[in-house]
Design a protein around this nucleic acid. Structure first.
Lengths: 188, 188
DNA sequence: TTAAACTACATTGAGTTAGTAGGAATTAAA
DNA sequence: TTTAATTCCTACTAACTCAATGTAGTTTAA
């Protein structure tokens, strides 16, 4: 059930860009992201390329260039990022919503493994498709401010801007977990 | 978030052995399992070997030999099988309970990715550590009986033996999902 | 004695992962 | 107009994992 390093790095970089946006920093260079997150710079370059092609981020080339989010952070779900880098969320193909694949078992409708893995896939998707970059950014910043940790991407003591909150999505039921506890208004 | 083929095959084989036990069949040969589930036989042999070494199954060598579960099906959690074959359930090492590993991020306590992935790991473990082989076997047999599908590993029309139910585990909260819906007494 | 099963271990081809390398193109500023 | 800093593009690769396959046993019931 692993997330690849590539996927992890992509998420870290995007979260950083989300923080940068929130903190008022217009552009961030790959070198800075790589240094902050201890990611090999050339590897991260490739990843940023991919994220750009898929429309998650935009770039400014040339000196003092860099990257920024191409959309508001609350329009980028974590699930869409993970799917791009690591493929379907489902543990096995026959329970994937976005990339169904018939499995080898003789009778799919009576397959206990399939029922079980469908629950797992729904649990995973229930979290990753529910939360957006904005959620993760907000939780991170909230924790940092609470603990008086200096915010990244800002030399100033981080003027408290009104955070861009995740759009209400009543179609999705709340989920138990740390994040939802940190968002009391998300709970039932 | 993939389950490997090896892991899938191991689960299929163990579920089959659980069904066999439930249906009164003392031993099942690798060849029969491989044929039923369309698994390459030599590959499955390896897997059975491993499952035996780890105490999930026992073997009877020689002609008319085969495999059977080494413990009651309700004492074998799905999570323990997946961990054996595919390693920790956690998407990243820094949220694994059974195999914690420090990650590269500079500040783990303020890492938004970590908080998110902790939720994911808990969601996965909440399912896979909650359900046992007995649960999956029971759901499978129930569905098959409901649909009048002939049960595997039994020529006779499958005398309805009292099923070995999963021991009550009040420490674990119920989980939403297909399986728990099929076990009404598991719901709150 | 023989056939059917498990046991043990070696090998392998394809693909994936996690990078590394080198330079071309672009841009802002000096 | 030059220079430095940045993204962009393409190729390469070592190591590892996955998913088997192969070969040669050993054990046991009939």
């Amino acid at each position: 059930m692993k997330l690849s390093k590539k996927g992890e790095y992509a998420l870290r970089a995007l979260i950083d860009l989300g923080i940068a946006a929130e903190v008022g920093r217009p552009l961030v260079q790959v070198s800075e992201l790589a240094a902050k997150e201890l990611i090999p710079i050339k590897f991260l370059e490739q990843i940023m390329q991919l994220l750009k092609e898929e429309g998650f981020i935009e770039s400014q080339r040339g000196k003092f260039g860099g990257y920024r989010l191409a959309r508001p952070a609350n329009k980028i779900t974590i699930g869409s990022i993970v799917r791009l880098i690591d493929g379907p969320l489902a543990p096995i193909g026959c329970v994937s919503h976005t990339a169904y694949e018939k499995c080898s078992c003789p009778d799919e409708t009576h397959c206990g493994l399939r029922m079980l893995m469908l629950d797992v896939r729904n649990a995973i998707a229930g979290i990753l498709d529910r939360y957006t970059l904005a959620d993760v950014v907000e939780v991170t910043l909230r924790k940092m401010r609470r603990d008086n940790v200096p915010l990244p991407f800002s030399d100033a003591p981080a003027a408290r801007r009104s955070p861009v909150r995740n759009a209400a999505r009543p179609d999705l039921k709340p989920v138990e977990g740390i994040l939802s506890n940190l968002f009391p208004d998300y709970s039932i």
